[in-house]
Design a protein around this nucleic acid. Structure first.
Length: 491
RNA sequence: GGCGCUAUCGUCUAGUGGUUAGGACGGGAGAUUCUCAUUCUUCAAACCGGGGUUCGACUCCCCGUAGCGCUACCA
């Protein structure tokens, strides 16, 4: 049994898109599942669309997502180079072969002629004018040094077919296949030529790619056949659309892997989510570790229909993965965001213990890592915002009521020796009994005073972590706000 | 326009001729509770339309419709 070899072959024309990541993932999972080889190949044959740091981004994004490759531009391998721009001699060699055997021909038609032809007969394809040039005509063009492309001669009157692993047999009448370009006038190959030559030379066994390639596959099949090479297995995976249909676009949310990373998505959560876009194991399993994905992935269970990317569901996965992490892991994950927000200094060893006590309180409230800053800010004096009367004075209470609550609170906390959840809870619940206010009114007043906001983690836990001194200080601050308010007007 | 691919709750999907059409996200209601979140319980929600084939179609075939893709010297 021959080894499985798959590849991901992006073109460095932009940052890695989430759809590309999903295609890469399926390809990678399939290779790993079958103890095969996964190859990264860069298709940089369109020099006009190259983007400077795209290659670095692709590599970084794939690595971030947890994928690795056995052969690639950075790691090398027995079938390199893995950058198509460095394989030009190979493409010329194979083009010459086709030319010599009469399967291909030089086309000297100008871009203008091609354009006007298309205007006159839209969708007709190339009219094959250069297919049967005389030796003299060719000679003339050559001596003039006219630029040319190389086109494949499509065999007429036949049908080309191939079996798609997830869609079955797909047949195409050759009349509908253009004498497409193999070699561009700048000496670079087109995708069609380069991908076939490389997949063959690199011994790719399964071509797993987006389904926008279905209609070009007959061209590739024809190439394999005229070279006399055996074909790989083709598997075209469905596209990912945005909600409402259409392409995923920046307007509606993150689209590139680096954006997802920046917004605080965990790679495992993102990978779990996109694995389920077009693939499923059964009718219930939703959460997969990477290892479980590898062991259960199967091309036969890949869906045919396009699917819609749901940011809500991704958020659910992300929250769930965050909740599954322990506090040390979360500390490492949160730190860059906290440093970035200026909440903790770069070398935050000093804050480590404090943060490790805060993290369990906010863990189940964070859906994106980036949200941690907002959740955690009030634990730091710099992030505490002195609450205004509108928050401090609960419904159906006056400023005087609120002040009384805070005074009583402060007094009863003062007596506590061990400032811990149980003691704090006992003190505050006792306080509720003696004042006659409702539990919610009392606790909310204290919450706002101590955290500066109407929403926070559990009150007792929060107070314990803040510490007695800081709590008392904030109670006093809020009291003075209330006192001032009482004098200023009648609230 | 031509050619192709696709079609189950709003979304991701299970289902391969006979099911009360299942699960998840989201939504509704409720429980817990000091707010939010978590957690738990619960409800609503789908087979694109029309023809066949068959004793019987979500499932197979055909047509239509819709969405998407390709129709470049882009990938």
């Amino acid at each position: 049994m021959s080894t499985v070899r798959t590849r991901f072959a992006p073109s460095p024309t932009g940052y890695l898109h989430i759809g590309g990541l999903r295609t890469a993932l399926f390809s990678w999972l399939f290779a790993r599942h079958n103890d095969g080889i996964f190859v990264l190949r860069i298709e940089d044959t369109d020099r006009s669309r190259l983007i400077e740091d795209a290659l670095g981004d692709i590599i970084e994004s794939l690595r971030w997502a947890g994928m690795d490759w056995d052969e690639g531009p950075d790691t090398g391998g027995p079938y390199g180079p893995y950058l198509q721009s460095e394989r030009r001699a190979l493409y010329s060699e194979y083009t010459d072969l086709l030319l010599e055997e009469g399967h291909a021909y030089r086309c000297f038609c100008s871009q203008e002629r091609l354009r006007s032809m298309k205007e006159k007969n839209p969708g007709q394809g190339y009219d094959r004018r250069c297919r049967n040039l005389t030796a003299e005509e060719i000679q003339r063009h050559e001596t003039c040094g006219d630029p040319f492309v190389v086109r494949l001669k499509i065999k007429e009157g036949e049908t080309t077919e191939f079996t798609d692993e997830i869609r079955g047999i797909i047949k195409t009448n050759n009349e509908l296949i253009d004498d497409f370009v193999l070699m561009k006038s700048d000496g670079f190959p087109t995708y069609h030529l380069a991908n076939v030559v490389d997949d063959h030379l690199m011994k790719i066994s399964h071509v797993i790619r987006g389904d926008e390639w279905i209609s070009s596959t007959p061209k590739h099949v024809l190439l394999y056949e005229t070279f006399g090479w055996s074909k790989p297995v083709f598997a075209h995976v469905p596209v990912i659309l945005r909600e409402g249909g259409g392409k995923l676009s920046k307007r509606h949310g993150a689209t590139t892997v680096r954006e997802f990373k920046k917004r605080g998505y965990l790679p495992d959560a993102l990978v779990n989510f996109i694995a389920l876009l077009g693939w499923s194991l059964d009718d219930k399993t939703e959460v997969f570790s990477v290892g479980e994905l590898i062991s259960s992935f199967d091309l036969a269970r890949v869906n045919r229909a396009a699917c819609v990317f749901s940011y809500e569901k991704l958020d659910w996965f992300n929250g769930m993965y965050i909740r599954m992490k322990d506090k040390e892991e979360l500390y490492d994950l949160f730190l860059p965001y906290l440093v970035d927000a200026g909440l903790v200094p770069e070398d935050s060893c000093l804050h480590r213990d404090y943060l490790l006590r805060i993290i369990p309180l906010v863990r189940e409230r964070v859906k994106h890592l980036s949200e941690v800053c907002d959740q955690v800010a009030f634990f730091f004096d710099e992030g505490y915002v002195t609450p205004g009367l509108e928050f401090l004075v609960q419904k159906k209470l006056t400023a005087a009521d609120s002040a009384r609550i805070l005074e009583l609170c402060s007094a009863s906390l003062q007596d506590i020796e061990r400032f811990e959840v149980e003691e704090i809870e006992n003190a505050l619940r006792g306080l509720v009994g003696t004042t006659g206010y409702k539990t919610g009114q009392v606790f909310m007043t204290i919450r706002v005073a101590v955290t500066g906001r109407p929403v926070s983690p559990g009150l007792f836990e929060t107070m314990q972590v803040l510490g007695k001194k800081r709590v008392q200080k904030r109670l006093r601050t809020s009291l003075s706000v209330l006192k001032k308010g009482e004098q200023g007007d009648n609230v």
